[in-house]
Amino acid sequence: MDRIPILSMGNLLLVIIQFDMHDRLALALQDDLTEQIVKEQAKGVLIDISALDVVDSFIGRVINNTASMARLLAAETVVVGMQPAVAITLVELGLALTGVKTALNVEKGMALLGKSSGR
């Protein structure tokens, strides 16, 4: 099965989703990511979803849950690059991802992570 690569940069983890995820891939990402956070002792996670055109309630919830899990493992999650249509869909679905930090692009997301980890 395909896996979404998780890149490690210092104490940050970088996940770039480059195609529309199906449900199992999303769950696999959740597993991999939590394990990597523990293994690398990551302080922050940045998920780039700019290539994601379609998001359903399940993927929305997985993103939300992943962020909550990361927080439990003491890592801050920033979701970046959400498409306008995706943002509207999530809001209409009632998934405002309130627990997740968001930024417009990777650069701003990195700045946000840098600020909150006090570097």
């Binding site: 959400m82 943002a87 999530l90 809001v91 405002a96 991802l97 968001t102 417009l104 692009n105 701003k108």
Partner: peptide, 12 residues
């Protein structure tokens, strides 16, 4: 509130 939530998802 919906508009605000959507803008927040975009990082604004």
């Amino acid at each position: 509130l919906k508009t605000i939530a959507a803008a927040r998802l975009m990082g604004a």
